[in-house]
Simulated assay, not measured.
Amino acid sequence: QDCVRHVRRFAAFLRRSPDTATPEDIRRFQLYQHENGVGPATINGAVSALRFLFLVTLKRRDLARVLVIMRHPRKLPDVLSVEEA
């Protein structure tokens, strides 16, 4: 269900069928997701769904290579000072 949802969102973003997508469309979609505050886990889920669509269903390796996995930002742990401890 998640894969279908991600492909549906990609098609809605394109306003046409995903099989007509170009590498520039994929780049714009990922940038759109990032700029609208979509989290890395959701973006990576969309990457997996679209990668499956392009590799297995459409046999379009060229488009699958354009997809970029997002890295989760790492936060440093809070360290207490001697006075705070």
Rank of each mutant, 00 (worst) to 15 (best):
L31T: 13
I26C: 04
R74L: 14
V7E: 10
Q1F: 04
L67T: 07
A46S: 13
F10N: 03
E83T: 15
R5C: 09
R60C: 07
L67K: 02
F10T: 01
A85F: 08
I43A: 10
T20S: 07
R61H: 14
D2T: 10
L67P: 02
F52E: 04
K75N: 11
Q33W: 02
F10R: 02
E84F: 10
A64W: 00
R15Y: 01
L58S: 01
I69S: 07
G39V: 06
T42Q: 04
P40L: 01
T57G: 00
D2V: 09
L67M: 08
R5V: 10
V38Y: 02
E24A: 12
L14S: 04
P77Y: 14
V68E: 12
L76S: 11
V56I: 10
E24T: 08
I26K: 02
P40M: 01
I69Q: 06
P18S: 07
T20R: 12
H6R: 07
R5W: 04
V7K: 05
L63G: 02
S48Y: 10
Q33V: 02
A11L: 04
L31A: 12
N44A: 06
D62I: 06
V68G: 05
L76M: 15
N36C: 05
R16T: 11
D2Q: 12
L80W: 08
T22E: 12
H72V: 14
I43S: 09
R15E: 15
R16G: 08
P73T: 11
D62H: 05
V66R: 00
L80S: 13
S17E: 11
D25F: 08
L31D: 15
G45Y: 03
Y32N: 10
V4M: 05
R27H: 03
F54I: 03
H34N: 09
L31G: 13
R60D: 02
G37D: 05
E84H: 14
K75E: 13
A49E: 06
V4R: 11
S17M: 09
P23V: 11
E35M: 09
V82H: 12
